[in-house]
Amino acid sequence: MTERTGFLYPFLDDAVDDPAALLDDLARSAAGKWAESLELRASSLEDLEGALTGAALALAVRVAAGGRVLVFGNGGSATDAEAFAQNCLDASPRPIPALCLASEPAVLTALANDIGVDAIFARQVAAHGRGHDVVVAFSTSGGSTNVLAALDRARALGLETVGIVGYGGGAMQAHVDHCLAVRSDSVHRIQEAQTAIAEALIAAASQHVQNLEGDR
């Protein structure tokens, strides 16, 4: 038996076999969720204005001093981390050096096989982390044990830590210097808001790095 999506679609009868009626209901539902997503992105950016400014400045100070961004997450958050790294490299006016620790199947499978999944990211932070680096962690729940372990390792090494997280921050709040938390408990809506937050963070940080370098 699979869990049904019925709770998401109380207006749908399981016995429906008229495609037109189903399409009508689905289109209406999609439009509602699209609007919900736009609203959550806008309210998250507004709520996090101060935290975003702080995180962008801290990130920029590190990068201007020669640091890089190490970014990671599990599953869909791994792909969000990869997008974050690409967006850093493409950032304007000043590209930000970034590595995605979730994009290396050889390293990930070696760690999972030889040590265990909790070593994924923490071991890479230990290998890559240098004085001025910044760690950016993506998690929707805020509770992934390997992500929290990697953040703890980063802090022990003296790296700056940023969390982009859902569920109001979850356990991650206690493991990062800058917590950018979305107040939602829908994984999909959280990821959409995280994408908007990441774009805002990178745009602001890129500008700050350029300004810091110009002041020298």
């Binding site: 049904r4 749908l12 016995a15 429906v16 076999d17 689905l26 969720k33 699209w34």
Partner: peptide, 17 residues
């Protein structure tokens, strides 16, 4: 693509369509 995923699963739960 989140909505594409979700709506696809809803359709799969309605064998009549």
């Amino acid at each position: 693509y989140h909505l594409l995923w979700e709506l696809t699963h809803v359709c799969l739960e309605h064998p009549g369509v």
